[in-house]
Computed example of a mutant assay.
Amino acid sequence: METLMYPSAPVLSESEVLVPPATAQQQPTHRLLHILWELRYSGAEVMVYDAKEYFESRGLQGAILARGPEFGPYAPTLARAGYPVEHLPARRNLGSFIELYRYLRQHPADVVHLHLEGLFIWHCLAIRLAFPKARIVHTHHDVYFQYGPYLRLKRTFHRWLATHVLDVRHVAIGESVQTVEKEHFRNPTTIVYNWIDENEFRPPTPEQAAAARQEIGIAPDAFVVLTVGTCNDKKCHNEIFDAVARVKDRLPNLVFLHRGTGENLPQERAYVQKLGIEQHVIFLNYIDYLPKVFWASDGFIFSSHWEGLGNVILQAIACKVPVILYQGWGMNDFRPENPAENYGFWINPDTERFDEALLEMYAMKQDGRLEDWRDKAFAFYRKKFSAKKSLTRMADQYLL
C-alpha cells in the first residue's frame, strides 16, 4: 500500500463564495474518507481538491483512498493540498475486501464518500461492517444507460440493497444522472451539482483575454474554439477535427485549441496531420493556469455524446464562453428552458455536424452578436450553478 502525505497548504484563496456561516466553524471534527478509483485530473478529484477548505470549516477532516490498479497522476497534487492519500488497489475477490475492512478498522471514519461505480456494493458492505454508525454517501458521477439487461438488473438490486439495508445516501450530479438512476435503476437520488473553483474560473478582463492569447501564441483576430478533455474514445475528438477540415477554407483564421492528454493523443496528432489542418490546431498538453485557455477562446466545443455533468462546460460558461454541444445526457442539463436565454448550439449527433454551428458562431463574432451570448452564458451559470450552494448541500449530506 502506498501513502502520500505532505504538510497542509492553503488550497483556495479567501472568498465569500466558499466561506460558511460562523456557526458552522464551531462544530466538532468529523473524519471524512473519500474513496475514489485512480486519482486523475478529472471532475471528482478536482472537486475534492477544491472543497478541502470548505469542508474543514464545517468540521470535516478529509482523507483519500485510491482503489484503482494505479495510484494516478493527481495523487501528489491532492497530497500537497494536505490530504493523507493512500493507495489500496481493489481486486475482484473476497480477500481484497477483507483487506479493505482491515484498512478501514485501522483508519476510523465518521463519514465515507464513495465516488466509484465499479465494485460499489462490495465497498458499501465492507464500510458498513467496519463502521456500523458511519454516514455513507455515494455520488453517481455519470449516466449508466448503456448497461445491458442483466447488468442493469444486478445494479438495480445493488442500489436497493445499499439504500434499504446498508443505509447509503445517493447523490446525482445533475438532472440527467438523476433521471437515469430513477428510470433505469429505480434509485431515487438527491441532486448536488458539480462545483468548480469560482475564484479561478471567472470572466476575464479584456487585458486578461488579450494576454492569454499572446501567451498561447494566438493572433488577436483569430476565431478560437476550445475543447478540454481526456483524449479517449468517449470524447470523440476526431469529430471536431473533421469539422475543422471541412470549414477551414471558409474560416481562414480558425484556431481549434485542444487541451488534454490521454491514450488517444498520438492517434489524434497523426489524424490532424492526415487531414492537413496542423496550422489550425494547437495541442496544449499542459498549461500552468487552466482558466487562460477559456479566456483566450470565443467558443467551447465538446464532442462527447453523453456525460454526467461536464465540469469543463461549467468552467467554460463561468468564464463567459458560449458553447457548441451535442444533444444528449449531461449536455442537455446546460440548455436553458427559455429560448431567450440561449447561449449556444445543441447539435443532434445522428443528423447534424458541427460545421454550421462553427460557421454561425464565426458570423456572430464578426457582427457583435456573440457578446450577447457571452453574457447569457455567464448569466445561466449564475442562475443554475453555485459552488456555495453545492458545497453546502454536500456537507449537509454528510452531517444532517
Rank of each mutant, 00 (worst) to 15 (best):
D367F: 14
Y398P: 13
N194M: 00
V323R: 01
E200P: 02
G148H: 02
V48P: 07
Q273C: 05
G330E: 03
L119C: 13
A126P: 11
M1R: 15
P188S: 02
H164Y: 05
P7Y: 11
F380Y: 08
G299Q: 14
E263F: 03
E352C: 04
H140W: 14
N332L: 03
L129K: 07
Y49V: 09
A387H: 00
H123V: 15
G260D: 04
V85M: 09
N238I: 10
W122A: 14
S57H: 03
Y398N: 11
T189L: 03
A109H: 13
A270L: 11
L32C: 05
Y398I: 08
G299L: 12
P20L: 11
P336A: 09
V321F: 08
T227R: 06
H305V: 00
A318Q: 03
Y286P: 12
H34A: 03
G95Y: 03
A296T: 15
F55P: 13
G344H: 05
W160T: 01
E239K: 15
R135A: 10
I136C: 01
A245W: 14
G330M: 00
W195K: 08
Y101A: 09
H140K: 07
G217R: 08
S8Q: 12
L100S: 04
I313K: 00
F201R: 02
G62R: 01
V168S: 05
F354T: 01
K52C: 07
H115L: 00
P266G: 11
Y144P: 01
Y343E: 03
H170L: 07
P220H: 08
R382H: 13
M331S: 10
V293R: 15
H141D: 02
L265G: 11
S15R: 04
L325Y: 14
N348Y: 12
